[in-house]
Structures are given as structure tokens and as C-alpha cells.
Amino acid sequence: MHPAPSIIAFSTFSGLGLGLLFWLGVDNTAPTGWVAFAFFAIAYILAVGGLISSTFHLGRPERAIKAFTQWQTSWLSREAWCAVAALVTMGLYGLFLVFFETQIAVLGWLGAFFSLLTVYTTSMIYAQLKTVPRWNTGLTSALFVSLSLAGGALLSGRVTVGLVLLLIAGAIQGIWWKTGDTRFKQSGTDLQTATGLGRMGQVRAFEPPHTGTNYLLNEMVYTVGRRHAQKLRMISLILMLVVPVVLLLLPYPHIFGLLAVLSHIAGVLVSRWLFFAEAEHVVGLYYGMR
């Protein structure tokens, strides 16, 4: 699948921002005043910035508001609702913390719930697609939610919880990659079933319908960069997991904590790029490609 920068930025940054909002929401001793303002500002810049960048890949962004209508069947529509619910609830919660130094715990818990639910709905947009076997698994949701929780814990300065969550997210990432490599084959879809000609013999794509490229090939048969996938996986895991864990174990939590966050974000960006670049859509079979 084509790794659109707007989608990679969206899912990475809004995931982090919503993760931070989750931890702010469930915090029994939430910050107040200017400290709260700083935390909420970071969370909203990440979450809202990510959501805005997601509209850049739309063909008709001016009609984006219509995406709220089909929540009964569409995960994309559900994501829109959950994001608004999370941002409004946490906005109110933050307002009271910043300006009135009052914590309304119920709002916090509700906002934390919607924040996590938003990340889950994002993951389901991909996990629901049978056409992309690598994504079509519950592990995809586990990956998105665990990364969001770990990143949020890092951003909110939770060292112990952050360490544990980083290790969990790293483990899920490893399993997701390992099992993902065989999932296309396991899906049972190949050129024989795609053409229905398998019962006659071995099918080979002889000639594509056109000499140039098209939307389908650009969007869903993106093969550039898969060559370096193994190296990029290692780079991603080192940046996302190993470096932050080492930095968190050092003294001076503020300086090294910041570096840990930056390294983690870089690692998640690489991982998200691979999430798309490595994903193979079954339509590629019709073109003799994967």
C-alpha cells in the first residue's frame, strides 16, 4: 500500500496525543494550572494536528464533515465520532484543571475511554480489510493501542509504566511483523482464485491491461522500499524501544526523557511507514505483482 505521508503522520501523532490524553484523564493527581496547560497543549497539538493532516489525502476535503453520517457500518465514520467525543470531553476536563484547578474525575475517565476508543477505531480501519491480509488481524489493534499507551506514558513522564508498556508494545510489534510475513499466503487468495482459472493449470500474468501505470498500482501495489524492510524493522525497533528504555534507566529524567520521547516518535514513524509499504493488497495479483 502507498505510504502516504499525511496518513503516517496522522496515525503516529494523533496516536501519541490521544495516548497522552488517556494518561491525563486517568491520573488521580492530575496537574493543574500552567503545568496542566502545557500538557494539554502538547496533547491537542499532536492529536488535532494529526487529525487535520489526515484530511490532506482526501480528494474532496471540503466535504469531510459528511464522514460523520455512516457510523453504523463504517469504522472511518466511527473514528470521526470518537475523536470528537474524546477531544470535547478532555477539553472540558482540561479547562477545569487549567483555569479552576478543579479535577472532575468522571470527565477524565470518560475522556480517557474515548481517547483509547479513537485509537482502536483507527486501527480497525486497517484491521477490517480482508483485502490486505497483513492488516487483517486483531493484532493490528493491539499494536496501535499499545503504542499509543506507551507513547502517552512517555510523554506524561511515567517512567516505570512507560518502560513496561514499551516492552509490551515492542513485543506485539515483533509478533505482528513475524506473523504478518506469512498471512498473505494463509489467506488462500492467489492468482488461481483471483482469475478462477486455477482448475485449468498454472496461471501467469501475461500482459497487463495498459502500458502505463494507474491509480490501483500507485495506491495499492507499492513495492518500493520492501527490499530494505528487514533493516528498517531493526532501525524502527531500536529507535522505538531500545534507545528509550536505555535513556529512561539513566538519571536526569528531564533531558533524557525528552530524548527518549523523540527517539520513540522517530521509531514509530519508521514502523508506520513499513506498516503501509510492506502491506500487500490482493489486487496486485491481477497485475502479476504483490
Partner: peptide
């Protein structure tokens, strides 16, 4: 008139039957 061009339907189709007009 309602399409926002998100492309998700083209992702969901296994046959490559939908194309986003540039």
C-alpha cells in the same frame, strides 16, 4: 456529490474495480 475521495472503498475492493479520478 457525497464522496470525499478518502479511497477506503478502493482499498476494501479485492478486484480493483474502483479508481479515484485524479
Amino acid at each position: 456529490k457525497d464522496c470525499i475521495g478518502c479511497g477506503l472503498c478502493a482499498w476494501a475492493c479485492p478486484y480493483g474495480a474502483r479508481e479515484l479520478d485524479k
